[in-house]
């Protein structure tokens, strides 16, 4: 019997959609091998977020609410997770892949002497055990793996699991006691430099318009990539090349070491298609690429490829999409 703890992720109280994919993974495990799952929310001022988790089939929504957890600092959060796992005798800890879970979950795993798998895309029951599939080598290899030990930790790719259907019944909300004085406080938060954007987040969007080194400066990126995105209600993304040159913020990087996305439609505008970039977007349903080099590797995975200059094709595309 699995007792699963799903770590819920939120941004200042706004739930991340990926959390529901993690719950979908938990449901899949329960369906295959039996068990129940709880959510664990960490932070402060979490009433609304907790409410948002009550219709997903969890046995309980556990809330660790403390002003000491206002910022998601790894040392504090991992401690609360490990304590909760012990108190609830959880056997499996799950989170959706993100910089939040990458920071915190491995730390919690080590506190629990638990093995951990990142980037899990499938799970099935094999005898008394669970067998997982995960992505490695920049998306070039899928490994089938098992984890030894009484507690297992996994971070799952949100695109690979469907959110649970909304339930009539509401999961009960339970407070988790946080001993604020006993939390480790190695790190202190100073500030966050977030560009407030009206655009959707790339991990939650149906369409992503992404730009590469073809875009010469931030103004061009905003006009062409941003402009097309706004017209389509899409998110923007970029290759590493533009982040490195300061044209786009790091939060836009798609790839092996950035965000992994799988929207319905991905526009690759002036992106060559390095394996590290493709690792982050090749599970997209439909890829449309515009590149002036007919031999660019992106055309090997694009459903629709147009050999053209983005400075000409994108304004034309924007113009003609209006009609």
């Amino acid at each position: 019997m699995n007792r699963i703890l799903v770590i819920a992720e939120h941004d200042q109280g706004h739930l991340k959609l990926a959390t529901f994919a993690a719950a979908g993974f938990a449901q899949k495990v329960c369906a295959a091998a039996g068990g129940t799952f709880d959510f664990l929310l960490l932070g402060s001022g979490l009433a609304a977020a907790a409410e948002g988790l009550r219709r997903s089939g969890a046995a309980a929504v556990l809330v660790a609410d403390s002003t000491e957890l206002t910022q998601p600092l790894a040392d504090r959060c991992a401690q609360v997770i490990a304590d909760t796992v012990r108190a609830r005798a959880a056997t499996l800890v799950v989170a959706a892949t993100s910089t939040f879970s990458k920071d915190i979950l491995p730390r919690a795993a080590a506190l629990l002497d638990a093995g951990m798998l990142s980037d899990v895309i499938d799970v099935r029951r094999e005898g008394d055990d669970l067998t997982f599939r995960r992505v490695m080598f920049a998306g070039n290899v899928i490994a089938t793996v098992q984890l030894d030990g009484p507690i297992k930790c996994v971070a799952v790719r949100s695109a690979a699991f469907a959110a649970p259907a909304a339930t009539e019944a509401l999961s009960p909300v339970e407070a988790v006691a946080v001993d604020a004085a006993a939390l480790p406080k190695f790190a202190e938060f100073i500030s966050r430099e977030t560009k407030v954007s009206a655009r959707p987040d790339a991990t939650e969007a149906r369409i992503i318009v992404s730009g590469g080194r073809a875009l010469k400066n931030a103004a061009d990126f905003e006009r062409l990539v941003g402009g097309l995105a706004d017209q389509l209600g899409a998110a923007v993304g970029s290759s590493r090349a533009l982040v490195d040159s300061g044209i786009t913020p790091n939060s836009l990087q798609i790839g092996q070491t950035g965000k992994v996305v799988a929207p319905d439609l991905y526009f690759a505008l002036g992106i060559s298609g390095a394996i590290q970039h493709m690792a982050g977007m090749k599970d997209t349903k439909v890829i449309a690429a515009i590149n002036k080099d007919p031999d660019a590797p992106i055309f090997e995975i694009a459903d629709y490829g147009l050999v053209a200059d983005v400075y000409e094709a994108v304004p034309e595309l924007m113009q003609k999409l209006k009609t």
């Binding site: 638990a114 093995g115 798998l117 067998t131 992505v135 998306g139 070039n140 290899v141 899928i142 490994a143 089938t144 793996v145 098992q146 984890l147 030894d148 030990g149 090749k282 890829i287 449309a288 515009i290 055309f299 090997e300 995975i301 694009a302 459903d303 629709y304 490829g305 147009l306 050999v307 053209a308 094709a313 034309e316 595309l317 003609k320 999409l321």
Partner: peptide, 26 residues
């Protein structure tokens, strides 16, 4: 604690089609 049972290649994407114009792409 991790036991790797097997490694495989992911199902590859095949290249789609080239379009000649923006109109065709739309």
């Amino acid at each position: 604690r991790t036991r790797v049972l097997k490694l495989e290649r992911p199902a590859g994407r095949k290249a789609g089609v080239r379009v000649k114009t923006v109109d065709e792409l739309i």
